[in-house]
Each structure stands twice: as structure tokens, then as C-alpha cells.
């Protein structure tokens, strides 16, 4: 189970300010702290306030600053093609592109980029018609993504399918459909694609957000989830994930199992 730390994102005020003032310190602090908290990837997002023209330069800067202090690879989180490529050019290790949809036009642009830089890529199970409601429709789009990756020569296990969880207060019926999709993703090919979700979305504008996030994460892991974009500062969440590694017989038990998971 790979945790993608969500914190280096311009939608958070400290990062927004850091980008505005070209101050690398907050970026570095979050890179280090997220790595220490159990993250396996750092999500990097310029946020909504950076102009389209400036996004490539800002993305490049954020990745360089983060990787200066952390050995973690980054999840390059933007829909701006130029910003993705700018990030990939300076990235050390195997990057993860976040993301493409199953729109043919989008796949034709983003997948060759993943192939060129040997990066992983997150594929959203949605297209120009939006997010499907049922698991079956999500899986149909997931298959489109698998086939297109294969055609571009991207190994299937470099594809992280995101079945798109929606806030449970407005789209409650999606939660079980996403779980069903996670199970079926593993049947699409051999080796199977990986899966991911943007966890915090499930509790958008709800009360008890951490409770909902953690509970849904455990349910999703039980359904086969491989990774998630999460708040790794929620130490209960990270500890619970460490326990799932033991209970799924993926990590060998030892008394320090929480610590070893965080450090691994």
C-alpha cells in the first residue's frame, strides 16, 4: 500500500504563499515531514492560483525543492501538459503523472509522455461525459485505459486506475460502486493494473472527516486498493494502514510493525 502525501499543493495556504514568495522552506518541511510520516510518493500540485503560463516553471521548482531534501518520487498533479513535461524533465526516479482521463484525446496526449519518461500514470475512470455512476461503466473506461497503455508500450502495472470517489454527502451511492470497481480492476489484465483514490474527496464538506476517510480507506484496501492520495499527518490513518499490511499477510508481523511500515 503506497501512501501519496497530499500536502505540497497550492490549495493549502502555506504552499500558496511559498510559491508566491519563492520560499522553498515550507515545501522542504512538508517533503521531509511527509516522508517521515510514511509517504511513499509526494503529490505536487501548483494549486489554482498559478497562471497557466507559469505552471511549468512552478512545477519544476516545486519538484526540485522537494527532491532536494527527500528521496521520495513525486506524483505530478496537474492537467497542464507543459507543466507535466517540465516536471518530468527534472524529476529524479520514477515519477507518477496525475492524471489522464479515459478521453481518447487526453490519452493520446498524456500516455506517450508517460511512455517517453518511463513514468507511472494515474488513469481516471471518467471521460468527456463525466464520472459514471456504476461500477460496470467505470470498469469499461478502466479497460479503455488499460488497452491504450498497452498500445503505447506502458507496462500495465505502471497504470494506476482511479475509480473516482465522490463526497458521500452528495453522492453516497458511489462509495460501494468504487469498492466494486477496485475489486474488478485486478481482473482486467495480468499483471493487473494498480489502483488509487483521492481519499479526502470522500468526506468533502462532511463532519467527522477523518473518521470517514479512515473507514473508507480500510474498506478500499480490503477491496484491493494499492495506493491513495492521503493526509499522512493523520497518524491514526497511517497506523491503520500498517495494520492492514499485516492482516493482508503482505508484511511479516513483528512488534514494531507500525514503525517498520512508516520507515519502509
Amino acid at each position: 500500500m503506497i501512501l501519496i502525501g497530499e500536502r505540497i499543493n497550492g490549495m493549502f495556504n502555506d504552499i500558496k504563499e511559498a510559491i508566491k514568495n519563492k520560499d522553498p522552506e515550507p515545501i522542504k518541511q512538508h517533503a521531509i515531514k511527509q516522508e517521515e510520516s510514511g509517504a511513499g510518493y509526494l503529490d505536487v500540485n501548483t494549486g489554482p492560483t498559478v497562471d497557466k503560463e507559469n505552471q511549468p516553471a512552478v512545477m519544476e521548482w516545486l519538484i526540485q525543492v522537494a527532491q532536494e531534501v527527500s528521496k521520495l518520487p513525486c506524483c505530478i498533479d496537474t492537467t497542464n501538459l507543459n507543466a507535466i513535461e517540465a516536471g518530468l524533465k527534472v524529476h529524479k526516479g520514477k515519477a507518477l503523472i496525475n492524471s489522464t482521463t479515459a478521453d481518447q484525446a487526453k490519452m493520446d496526449i498524456f500516455l506517450p509522455l508517460a511512455a517517453k519518461y518511463e513514468a507511472g500514470i494515474i488513469g481516471l475512470t471518467m471521460n468527456e461525459r463525466g464520472v459514471p455512476k456504476t461500477s460496470a461503466d467505470r470498469i469499461a473506461l478502466a479497460m479503455e485505459l488499460v488497452v491504450n497503455c498497452d498500445m503505447q508500450g506502458i507496462p500495465t502495472d505502471d497504470l494506476f486506475l482511479d475509480p473516482l470517489i465522490l463526497p458521500c454527502n452528495v453522492a453516497q451511492e458511489h462509495a460501494p460502486e468504487v469498492l466494486e470497481t477496485l475489486q474488478q480492476i485486478k481482473t482486467l489484465s495480468d499483471p493487473a493494473p494498480k489502483s488509487t483514490i483521492g481519499l479526502s474527496n470522500v468526506s468533502q464538506s462532511c463532519v467527522n472527516r477523518n473518521l470517514i476517510n479512515r473507514t473508507y480507506l480500510i474498506m478500499a484496501i480490503a477491496s484491493g486498493l494499492d495506493s491513495a492520495i492521503v493526509d499522512v499527518y493523520d497518524s491514526s490513518l497511517v497506523e491503520e494502514v500498517a495494520a492492514t499490511k499485516i492482516l493482508k499477510n503482505e508484511d511479516i508481523y513483528c512488534d514494531s510493525f507500525v514503525k517498520t511500515y512508516i520507515q519502509s
Partner: peptide, 10 residues
């Protein structure tokens, strides 16, 4: 005991 082996290494 594999669990103890791991713990001792830690």
C-alpha cells in the same frame, strides 16, 4: 520464530 527474528533485527 520469524516475528522475533524480524524484531531482533529491528
Amino acid at each position: 520464530d520469524i516475528n522475533l527474528a524480524k524484531q531482533l533485527n529491528i
